[in-house]
Structures are given as structure tokens and as C-alpha cells.
Design a protein around this nucleic acid. Structure first.
Length: 724
RNA sequence: GGGCGAGUAGCUCAGUGGUAGGAGCAUCCCGUUCACAUCGGGAAGGUCAUAGGUUCGAAUCCUAUCUCGCCCACCA
């Protein structure tokens, strides 16, 4: 009879949960083992990637639970700021509504409900995969106590001078109307034009060797930004332009007088070696402008259209149109020298693919360098270990070139930045503080100048700012309060996908060290992305998505889990296919049948302790092999070599125990002349099955527990709390 | 421009100094009263990308090259 997981998995999960086996046992004396679950985004059902982390983390959790250590796996869900905003905006658009026209509070409430619904669905899905997490400690990133911690962190950073508000060039998505962090911009190589534009000198210049020069040529890919030009810059070392520095040119079309300046940042070899400076719409230009006190003119608005500053001819036009117009005018004026085909990379919003507009904007930033410095230190000292090890260098490299992090977002969904602005700024102190008051609730009056004219900051935090605090925030606020933090922080391992190494892992290390004074975790295990058998990323549009819940329904969670770790090296991408899942489903069937057969031959009252076995050479061999495999598995799991462990136990159980030992014992039992002769083979079967169930349990928890429950003389109430 | 990873059986991948290189799937042959056909027994299949080098010994270490994939970067 084939194994039917649908009769087993739900029932077994309920049994575990009902008996409180997922809760950490504080009375255990071993070294605490803890994992903070990477909180799934509460904006969609689970995908196969979630099944991966559940499987890996659950293997660790179940293994260490059996190692007699107090174990905590703390689950949670993420409000996932911008990600959820994106999902919800699309949902609303389908309903024919415009998210920017709706009442903000109403939208917030709607999204909140939406996430809570998704959270409930996702939780049930995680359980279906077998996650033995302590749901009584579940947290949400918008829980009041979590928000309170995020506020405190913000305030501490601000007080310590690590958070500042300032006008900087940020990545602006004109579709979402918000800034994005550097990590949220995807650069794509595109072919465009490099335009060479002549900027006439105010007065013709005579060089030392008597040449008369009436213009300087600049090269640009974005001619429309010339409307916001404040200067033309050349490298002071560039001999060609030596005499031009300090001269004035007339900006074509607008006929504005702008200077030629010298700045070392200009690349002599690019284009003509002379660059137009548009401080409001280019990061490098902004830097140069700051060094040279040039000021900035915003000519492209936050809606992607030209502003009033661009002049009446262009105001209100979209960027593309203006470009055309500008080129046309320059041609008419005879100031377009030439154009060249040019390949360069252009930033796009990682969600909606809109071209990112560099914009000068007032935003909140964190100074990253001091934080990165400490992180680099602990990583270099191997206080945090990485699996696979090469991720360490990737992270160190990123940390040592870090830039300040823009943590404010102009969306409604998220944790509001707890700031009020005094409009009056009626005292020297208030002006010194820029009228910034850190407070969650609206203060009665300005603490600096007693003005009552206060307005609220409407920006919310980048979701990763709160996620960065997740390890200590959850432990400090879980249902056990500070006890969990004391017992389980730093956590044992942070297990997540490698594509959020910078987004999340790096920031946790930096922020958590600063706030708690300790590293947030000892190990970082980064798993790969799930791909189909042609190595393609899974996506809905490609139609190659494997729905983990569908797989669980069809083949069982045990088969899915085993298929995800089988043959997947540490940190490598995970290739999954129906055939692979099927082969593991066959393995569950094998386990089921072997288990049944052994149980049948043992009888209900068999007790290995009452047997005095007369072991044959083969018996000794298999018992010895069992011990050996067990020791190897232990080592493999501790080293995160799940694929090795999975393959070993698969080989051992199927091709040693089933193919050899069971066959051997079967003959001995069937041929036995009396009951006593059955004792030794029964003893061997009982022992190897019992040990195998333990070894298999972290990988395939349901079927192993089900068999264990039927095992005569089982030492414990449940396999999940067995001792390895 | 900088960096990382990979190239091993038809396919997907383990193995990363030591007998004669493994697994799963697929293939071929044989086998169903006797736990399991979601099975059992057996077979076939590899110059370990290429070229040099280190070594008593290299798939494994070093150097170079090629091919694929990925990440980072302010090329105006």
C-alpha cells in the first residue's frame, strides 16, 4: 500500500503543537540554540523560496532540539513597506482607483487588513511545510512594541549624530513618487546618444599662442538637464582648458551666464573633457557644485515633468519631449556639434522599471561609515562566520565602500518617522536644531521656542531600517519579554537567501552591534535561489513556478523538504523539478513500507531492553554502520552540509537497512523454529529503525514521527523530543 | 571598469591532495504469492572545460585561457 501523507501530516503537526513541543525548554542545560525566522512579506502567499528557508531552518531546529539544547525558533511577518505598497498599488489600480487620490489613513487601514489576512494564510502554509517554530512568540514588524523599539533606535542614532536630515541627490522613482535606496535601483545597459553641445563664451578668448576661441563643447547623454546647468567643469590638470577656468559661458537657449570651473573629479578622457554641471539631477554634479558653491536648480519635477525653472517653453513637458525640443533648438542655433552612439547603464526602479530620476531632495540618512567599521572588525575577526565562506569577502568589500543610507520613503505604508517640525523656529536653539523635534506623538509645543506651529513628518522608514533591528527587537518583545533576549541573544544562525546579504544581513550586523553592543548572530548561512531544471529563475511570466503548497498537497511536505536539500551544495542555487520531488516521494513510501514491515514483525509488546541479543557478523556490521552514519550526520548538519547528510541517510536507510538488513532479518524471522530465535533479528530491526527515524526526522519530520508513534517501547512520547 | 561563482555520467548535482571518481533522475536487460512496482537484482555510461606548472601522487593546489551565470561601480 502506498504511503498517504494526507492522512498523516496535518494530524502530526497538530499533535506537536498541542503538546507544546515547539516551545523552548528553559530547563535544559545545553547551550541555547536560536534562529530568528526571516519574516515573510505579509503581502502574498508563500512561494518556493519560503519552503527552502523553512526546510533548512527546521532541519537545524529539530536537530539541535534533539541535541538536548534549549531551542527557540521565533517566527514573524514583515509589513514589507515598499514591497507591499507596490503589491497594493497594483491591486488598487485593477479596481480602477488611484492610490494617490485616496485618503491616506483609509489606505493605511486597508493595507493593514490586507497584510493581516496574508499573514494568517502564510502562517498556515509555513505549518504545512512542517515549521516547528514557536507560534506563541510570533511577531509582526508593526507590533506596537516593535515600533517603539524602532523609535528608540532612531532617537539614539539621531542623538549620537548618526542620523541626519539633508538635501542630497537621491534615487527618485517618478511612478511611485518616492525615493529609493541605492540597492533598490537596478542598472541596465542601454544604447543611447552622447550629444556634443557647444556652449559659447561670453567673450571670445585669446589663448597664449594667439588662438581665438568662442566656445567650449560639452558631452552629455541628457541634454534636457542643461536647463538646470550651473557651470561647466574641466579638470584643472587638463592642458587644453587651462585658460578657460574662471571664464563665463552663456548657457544656450536660456542665455544664462555660468562659469567654467576646475574640479579634479572631471575625467579628462571622457567626451571632450568638459562637463556640464547640473547639481539638482546628478550625484557627481551635486558634489562638484557643493565644492564650488554653485547652488542648484531643479528643472525636472518629482512628477517627471519639467518645472517652472525650466522656462515657460518647457514647463510641464515630459523629459522625453523636452529632449527632442532641446535638440531641435540647438540644431537651429548651430550649437549641436555632433552625436555619437553611446552605451551606458541607466538606473531603473527594481519594481516598476521606471527610469530613476536623480533628484535633490530633503531626506533622512544614516551615516554608514562608523557602523560599517565595527561590522568589518567583527567579520574580519571571524566572530561572525559565513557559509559559504566566500560571502564574507563579498560583504567586506561592500562594507568598505559603503555610502550613507537614505532611510526615508514618501509612501504611506510603514512606520512613520517620529519627527515634528517647528514652523516658527523662533529661537536660536530651535534654528540650530532646524526645528526638528523627535517625538512619536504631537508635542504640545516646540521644546525649543514654545511655538505651537508644528507639522508632522509624513515620510516612513525604509522597511529595512526596522528589519535591521529584528533579531533584538523580537527577542526583547516576545511573549517572554527580556528573558528570551537574555537567553537567546546573540542568536545562533541567520539563515536567509544570498540576495538579501546587503539589504538585510549587513544592516542587521551594523545596527544591532551599535544598539546592543553585541553581534546579532554567530553564523550566517546563505542559501541559493530556486531555479527550474533549465536553471531559469522561477517567475509567473515564464510559467515555471512551482507552488510549494501544491507540491505539499500532491507529494507531501516530507518529499518537498528532502527534494530541496538533496544534491544542493552549500549556498548553491537550488534546482528543483517534479522528477526530483517524485523521487523523494518514493523515498517516503520506502520509509513507510519499511517501517510497517518492521513494526509488523516486532509485534506490539517488543522491548529491546528485555533481549539478550546474539549478534551475527552482519548484525554487528549494520549496528556499527548506524553509529558511524549518525556521527557523520551530526558533523554534516553542524557544518551546514545538509546535502551530504541527506544523501548519506538516504543511502543508508534504503540501500543498507532496507536492501540488506531487512532482507536478512526477514529470512531469519521467517525461518525461525521458535520465538527466541526471532529475538536477535527483531532487536536489530528495532534498533536500526529507531536510530534511522531520529536521523531522518530533521529532514522528513512527519512520516518519521508517525512511525515512531507506533514503535513498541518507544523511549519518549514523541520523536520530536527524542535525544540524539 | 572591479569582483565572485561554476564548467565532473545523457540531465541535475555531490566529491575538493591519497586505493580503481559518486548519487538522484533518465537508459538497457532480468524479475511480481513472500513490506514496498512509488519495487527488487544487474548493466552500460566520465581524457573530471583547455593548456602549462607544483607534488611520490592532482578532478582537488598554483598560473593562464575559453565558455556560462551572478554581483558591485557617480562612464557625464
Amino acid at each position: 500500500m502506498p504511503y498517504d501523507h494526507s492522512n498523516v501530516e496535518g494530524r502530526i503537526y497538530e499533535f506537536w503543537e498541542k503538546n507544546g513541543y515547539f516551545k523552548p525548554d528553559f530547563s535544559k542545560k545545553g547551550k541555547p540554540f536560536s534562529i530568528i525566522m526571516p519574516p515573510p512579506n505579509a503581502n502574498a502567499p508563500l512561494h518556493i523560496g519560503h519552503a527552502v528557508f523553512i526546510t533548512i531552518e527546521d532541519i537545524l531546529i529539530r536537530f539541535f532540539r534533539m541535541q538536548k539544547r534549549p531551542v527557540l525558533w521565533l517566527p514573524g511577518f514583515d509589513h514589507a513597506g515598499f514591497e507591499t505598497w507596490y503589491v497594493f498599488q497594483k491591486k488598487i489600480e485593477k479596481e480602477g482607483r488611484d492610490i494617490f487620490q485616496e485618503n491616506p489613513q483609509k489606505i493605511y487601514d486597508e493595507i493593514f487588513k490586507f497584510t493581516q489576512k496574508n499573514r494568517d494564510i502564510s502562517r498556515e502554509q509555513l505549518k504545512k511545510v512542517g515549521a516547528s517554530a514557536d507560534w506563541s512568540r510570533e511577531k509582526f514588524t508593526l507590533d506596537k512594541d516593535i515600533i517603539e523599539i524602532v523609535y528608540q533606535t532612531f532617537e539614539k542614532f539621531y542623538r549620537d549624530g548618526l542620523i541626519y536630515r539633508g538635501k542630497r541627490i537621491i534615487n527618485w522613482c517618478p511612478y511611485h513618487k518616492t525615493s529609493l535606496s541605492d540597492l533598490e535601483v537596478v542598472y541596465k545597459e542601454e544604447e543611447g546618444w552622447l550629444w556634443y553641445i557647444k556652449y559659447p563664451f561670453k567673450q571670445t578668448i585669446k589663448t597664449k599662442n594667439g588662438q581665438k576661441i568662442d566656445h567650449i563643447t560639452v558631452a552629455t547623454t541628457r541634454p534636457e538637464t542643461m536647463l538646470g546647468d550651473r557651470a561647466v567643469a574641466v579638470n584643472p590638470k587638463d592642458k587644453r582648458y587651462k585658460d578657460f577656468i574662471g571664464q563665463k559661458v552663456i548657457l544656450p537657449i536660456l542665455d544664462r551666464e555660468i562659469p567654467v570651473i576646475g574640479d579634479e573629479a572631471v575625467d579628462i578622457n571622457f567626451g571632450t573633457g568638459a562637463v556640464k554641471i547640473t547639481p539638482a539631477h546628478d550625484p557627481l554634479d551635486f558634489e562638484i557644485a557643493q565644492r564650488n558653491n554653485l547652488g542648484a536648480i531643479q528643472v525636472i519635477g518629482f512628477d517627471g515633468k519639467m518645472t517652472k525653472e525650466a522656462g515657460s517653453d518647457f514647463e510641464g513637458l515630459a523629459v522625453k519631449e523636452v529632449r527632442r525640443e532641446i535638440i531641435l533648438k540647438l540644431k537651429q542655433l548651430g550649437l549641436l556639434e555632433k552625436k555619437e552612439i553611446y552605451k551606458h547603464s541607466i538606473g531603473h526602479c527594481y519594481k516598476c522599471n521606471s527610469i530613476i530620476q536623480p533628484q535633490l531632495s530633503d531626506q533622512w540618512f544614516i551615516k554608514m561609515e562608523p557602523l560599517a567599521k565595527k561590522a568589518i572588525e567583527v567579520i574580519k575577526k571571524n566572530k561572525i562566520k559565513f557559509y559559504p565562506a566566500y560571502q564574507k569577502n563579498i560583504l567586506l568589500n561592500w562594507l568598505s565602500n559603503i555610502k550613507d543610507w537614505n532611510i526615508s520613503r514618501q509612501i504611506i505604508w510603514g512606520i512613520r518617522i517620529p519627527v515634528w517640525y517647528c514652523q516658527k523656529q523662533g529661537s536660536a536653539l530651535c534654528r540650530k536644531k532646524n526645528g526638528i523635534i523627535i517625538s512619536n506623538k504631537k508635542p504640545k509645543e516646540c521644546p525649543y521656542c514654545k511655538s505651537k506651529d508644528l507639522i508632522a513628518e509624513t515620510d516612513v522608514f525604509d522597511t529595512w531600517f526596522s528589519s535591521a533591528q529584528w533579531p533584538f527587537a523580537t527577542l526583547m518583545t516576545s511573549s517572554q519579554g527580556g528573558a528570551d533576549f537574555k537567553k537567546f541573544y546573540p542568536t545562533s544562525v541567520m539563515e536567509t537567501a544570498y540576495d538579501i546579504l546587503f539589504f538585510w544581513v549587513a544592516r542587521m550586523i551594523m545596527v544591532d552591534i551599535y544598539i546592543t553592543g553585541e553581534i546579532p548572530f554567530f553564523d550566517v548561512y546563505l542559501h541559493g535561489l530556486v531555479r527550474d531544471k533549465d536553471r531559469q529563475k522561477m517567475s509567473k511570466s515564464k510559467g515555471n513556478v512551482i507552488d510549494p503548497l501544491g507540491v505539499v498537497d500532491q507529494y507531501g511536505a516530507d518529499a518537498l523538504r528532502m527534494a530541496l536539500v538533496f544534491g544542493t551544495g552549500v549556498g548553491r542555487d537550488i534546482i528543483i523539478s517534479e522528477e526530483k520531488i517524485k523521487s523523494q516521494r518514493n523515498f517516503t513510501n520506502k520509509i513507510f513500507n519499511a517501517g510497517n514491515f518492521v513494526l509488523m514483525n516486532l509485534g506490539d509488546n517488543f522491548d529491546p531492553k528485555k533481549i539478550n541479543p546474539k549478534l551475527t557478523k552482519e548484525d554487528k556490521l549494520i549496528l556499527d554502520k548506524t553509529k558511524k552514519v549518525k556521527a557523520e550526520l551530526k558533523k554534516d548538519i553542524k557544518n551546514y552540509k545538509f546535502h551530504e547528510a541527506a544523501q548519506k541517510i538516504y543511502q543508508f536507510f534504503w540501500h543498507q537497512f532496507c536492501d540488506k538488513t531487512i532482507e536478512d532479518c526477514k529470512k531469519r524471522i521467517y525461518r525461525a523454529q521458535n520465538e527466541n530465535e526471532k529475538d536477535t533479528p527483531r532487536f536489530v530491526l528495532w534498533t536500526v529503525l529507531y536510530e534511522s527515524l531520529k536521523m531522518l526526522h530533521p529532514f522528513m519530520p512527519f512520516i518519521t514521527e508517525d512511525i515512531y508513534q507506533k514503535l513498541p517501547s518507544k523511549p519518549k512520547d514523541a520523536l520530536i523530543i527524542e535525544e540524539w
